[in-house]
Design a protein around this nucleic acid. Structure first.
Length: 874
RNA sequence: GGACGCAUAGCUCAGCUGGUUAGAGCGCUCGCUUCACACGCGAGAGGUCCACGGUUCGAGUCCGUGUGUGUCCACCA
């Protein structure tokens, strides 16, 4: 049965249908198969609150390309999907929604709130999954997971208990980063530093004995309410006499000491620093070293508390103004200078974080980081591009303990219980009574950092801590595909977690891509509204076009701009393929042609097969090296420039011949088109399936068809070279005609003088067709009087000159060609005459240059002859 | 204060371990209803590969310095 294809490809109609067929066929499902090698990718789980954006589109396109390629290579390829509960982000959204209804978390209580959160998950968790499907993602949906599901919870509890028992998780009172908006602690990694215009205020603290004062400088004057010392550098001669003295803290009246600590830099500010142990990480350390009192002057909302005296109740920023005004009034403010300084903000809500002392749970990092450093140094896990490995190592080598407890409800609850007797019980199973005294225990109200559960994602999703078949077969995973912004948050933590809990790295390669930016190079953001919606683009151009445009020109680790024009170009390419397939289909008889007969292959058949073969080999190499941008460019060039522009054009002549010639050319057309469909399938999954299904094929789906590989039997370099002689002649004739402004409708009889008589004779019909000739005569030589000449290294084509051709222009044209060839030859000869070149350069390179020289000499000879005969004829 | 990326055609970008006449897409110019495709066909124009120095027979590619630009890390109050 022959199927007729419409003139333009309609992706919106085809994609949904094809995706449904794939799902129905179960092709996404990876089977455990001891005959096959596994290839595993776990998805970076998108947030349940999220909507698909261009960054997701890129990330998932890259993953899908790799997984589809490996699947076609015969691997048991598993792409394991899922979503992330994203504790802070999700909780914040739910709280905001509740606020619109006039509700607070406390109104609902923990149970009620969690019920709402799970409802939210049900509504929105599925949304992004549907969007991933629109992109064509071939995830194994039967294995879909959620970071807060039961299995992940089991893994989290197991890990927590295990680390606790090893002493790698501890609870303690430390200075942590606190977000006064999210009302939770956050880790160091979750603080972003932004440079802000601030001030440097110089203050005067009078000595208690009235003998003068000492000047300090600060960017946060409101914290002076909690000052418990002034520190100077012990080496600083200006101040050595004052060490041990005390000052009276202005506005507060507290007597505080002047201490010496080498942390203070002599040359910065005034050389004397006010010390607020409760509100600055450095001051905290200084406080410990000197046994200073810690006076917390702020609430969790960053409002001055009762320790702040008259300023109690003011926000930290209002308190700053008020304190400054009072200091100024009291003559304590000496100088105000503008200063740029780094301010830490919460990565979720951009609120300025407040360093606070608080009792939290921590992961002790040093013992976990050491093997994670080693693994990357030894190359057990490799970063692509490599430079990100250095960034990872630098971070890992300087890591500090990880604050993992969060004062949130949406997340994995910390499996720790406290008894009135002072006993702390950490248990994966719920407990009710204290094992020591039998008293009632209360569970820690806090939850864990979202990234604590994502850190386990590569193995928790495969069934760990159970010793499952999936885990044994698919772990460690192969490739992790993600953007550079979450190397610390996620990648690093997966690596040390994998090593600690499974004894193996969680993945062999980390493939890092850049950020999608808008057409002006700006970051895409919701507030700017500059991020095109991938779903709209898919609707408009098709998922294939979007995917293709996202990998074209993409190089690992580099950012990329989004251009609708680029997607349009990709859409045009898809349409080009569509029409190539249409052309083939229109020319097939009732029955599919039998495979081509190798002995009957003509030169152009060998040419196209050889080209295809080489490109297939190269593309596999590129994919192996994660050079997806290069791979996609090669397929594009082959399909368009080689196959469509030349082979199909040549085939048109042959399809009008009889018998075996037709069958064979049809067979080659089908073979190559089928090959293109397979080669391109990972990049453009939908249209390639549609084309593959329409043309003769074996198998159910192109998804499971073998990926083209280099085949030595298809390497016809001699034929390639010969057909290129023909192509060169055709191009030269076209060029000549264009310069003479001859319209294509005006055919001319072409005479070709060449040494390759047999070759040109055989290809004469193609030359006739592709060079707009009325006919072709091949000769050993030709006098050429009154003719224009198209010169190639192997032939001179003569076109009859009529009134359209200006002999003077023709002379100039030939002269130009001659000059250019001579100039090139001069540089090549210079190289060849250079002895150090011929001696030191690799033989192949020298040989190359020799051939180039030969070719150029030919051109010069031919052009010279042509010029001479033209001269004689004018 | 460290570390890193980028600087190549009008625009956006490729260019792997040094050797091609430096490429692509878009844009531009000229010509074309050539029986798959105007989402097309054919022919073109357009580049001191940021600057300077070095290594080499040979550098867009490697090294150094500088300029511009971007990012990450870092406790200078």
């Amino acid at each position: 049965m022959q199927k007729q294809l419409s003139k333009t490809y309609e992706p919106s109609e085809a994609e949904a249908r094809i995706y449904a067929d794939w799902e129905r066929g179960g092709y996404f499902h990876a089977q455990i198969d001891s005959e096959k090698q596994p290839y595993t990718i776990v998805i970076p789980p998108p947030n349940i609150t999220g909507q698909l954006h261009m960054g997701h589109a890129l990330d998932n396109t890259l993953q899908d390309i790799l997984i589809r390629w490996k699947r076609m290579m015969g691997y048991s390829a598993l792409w394991l999907p899922g979503t992330d509960h994203a504790s802070i982000a999700t909780e914040a959204k739910i709280v905001a929604r509740m606020k619109e209804e006039g509700l607070t978390k406390e109104d609902l209580g923990r149970e009620g709130f969690l019920k709402r959160a799970w409802e939210w998950k049900e509504v929105y968790g599925g949304r992004i999954i549907q969007q991933l499907k629109k992109l064509g993602s071939s995830c194994d949906w039967e294995r879909e997971r959620f970071t807060l599901d039961e299995g992940c919870n089991r893994a989290v509890n197991t890990v927590f208990v295990r680390l606790y028992e090893k002493g790698l998780i501890y609870r303690g009172e430390r200075m942590i980063n606190w977000c006064p908006h999210c009302l939770t602690s956050i880790s160091d990694a979750e603080v972003e530093y932004t440079e802000k215009e601030g001030h440097f205020w110089h203050l005067r603290y009078p000595f208690s004995d009235g003998s003068g004062d000492i000047q300090v400088a600060t960017t946060r004057p409101e914290t002076m309410l909690g000052d418990t010392a002034v520190a100077v550098n012990p080496e600083d001669e200006r101040y050595t006499a004052f060490i041990g003295k005390t000052v009276i803290l202005p506005l507060v009246g507290r007597e505080i000491p002047i201490i010496a600590d080498s942390y203070v830099e002599k040359d910065f500010g005034t050389g004397a620093v006010k010390i607020t142990p409760a509100h600055d990480p450095n001051d905290f350390e200084v406080g410990i070293r000197h046994g200073l009192p810690v006076i917390n002057v702020m609430t969790e909302e960053a409002v001055i508390n009762e320790n702040g005296g008259k300023y109690a109740g003011l926000s930290r920023f209002d308190a700053r103004k008020s304190v400054l005004a009072d200091l100024d009034a009291g003559g304590f403010l000496l100088k105000t200078e503008p200063m740029k300084h780094n301010v830490g903000v919460c990565y979720r809500c951009q609120t300025v974080v407040e360093p606070l002392i608080s009792k939290q749970w921590f992961v002790k990092m040093a013992p976990l980081a050491a093997p994670a450093v080693e693994a990357v140094k030894k190359g057990e896990t490799r970063f692509v591009p490599e430079r990100f490995g250095k960034i990872y190592l630098h971070w890992m080598e300087n890591i500090r303990d990880w604050c993992i407890s969060r004062q949130l409800w949406w997340g994995h609850r910390i499996p720790a219980y406290y008894c009135g007797c002072g006993e702390v019980i950490v248990s994966a199973r719920k407990i009710t009574g204290c094992p020591k005294c039998g008293g009632k225990v209360t569970r820690d109200p806090d939850t864990l950092d979202t990234w604590f559960s994502s850190a386990l994602w590569p193995f928790s999703t495969l069934g760990w801590p159970e010793n499952t078949e999936d885990f044994n077969y698919f772990y460690p995973t192969d490739t992790l595909v993600t953007m550079y912004d979450i190397i610390f948050f996620w990648v690093a933590r997966m690596i040390f977690s994998g090593l600690e809990h499974t004894g193996q790295v969680p993945f062999k390669t980390v493939f890092i891509h850049g950020m999608m930016r808008d057409e002006l190079g700006r970051k895409m953001s919701k507030s700017l509204g500059n991020g095109p919606d991938p779903l709209e683009e898919i609707e408009k151009y098709g998922a294939d076009a979007l995917r293709f445009s996202l990998v074209t020109g993409n190089s690992p680790g580099n950012d990329m701009r989004y251009y609708a024009e680029k997607v349009e170009a990709s859409r045009n390419f898809a349409n080009k393929l569509w029409n190539a397939a249409r052309f083939i289909l229109m020319n097939l008889g009732e029955n599919p042609p039998p495979p081509y007969l190798p002995d009957d292959l003509r030169i152009e058949d060998k040419w196209v097969l050889s080209k295809f073969n080489r490109v297939a080999g190269e593309i596999n190499e590129n994919l192996e090296k994660f050079e997806l941008g290069l791979a996609v460019e090669k397929i594009h060039n082959f399909a368009w420039d080689v196959f469509c522009d030349w082979y199909i054009e040549v085939s048109k002549t042959r399809l009008r011949e009889d018998g075996q010639a037709v069958e064979n050319v049809a067979a080659v057309l089908v073979w190559v088109m089928n090959g293109i469909a397979r080669l391109l399938h990972p990049f453009m999954p939908f249209i390639t399936e549609e084309i593959w299904q329409t043309l003769p094929h074996t198998g159910e789906t192109v998804m499971l068809a073998p990926y083209p590989q280099f085949d030595p039997a298809l390497d016809f370099s001699a034929a390639e070279q010969n057909f290129e002689r023909i192509m060169a002649a055709i191009q030269a004739i076209r060029n000549l005609r264009a310069e003479m402004k001859v319209p294509p409708s005006k055919k001319a009889h072409v005479t070709i003088a060449t040494e390759f008589g047999e070759l040109f004779e055989a290809c004469a019909p193609y030359i006739t067709r592709l060079a707009s000739a009325s006919g072709v005569t091949v000769a050993k030589s030709f006098s050429g009087e009154g003719y224009a000449r198209a010169v190639t290294p192997d032939a001179v084509a003569y076109l009859p000159v009529d009134e359209l051709c200006d002999p003077a222009a023709e002379t100039a044209r030939l002269q130009k060609e001659l000059d250019s060839a001579r100039a090139q030859l001069a540089t090549v000869n210079a190289k060849l005459q250079n002895e150090s070149f011929t001696q030191k350069a690799p033989p192949t390179v020298v040989e190359n240059q020799r051939e180039t020289a030969k070719r150029l000499e030919q051109v010069i000879k031919k052009a010279q002859e042509a010029l001479n005969s033209l001269g004689s004829s004018v």
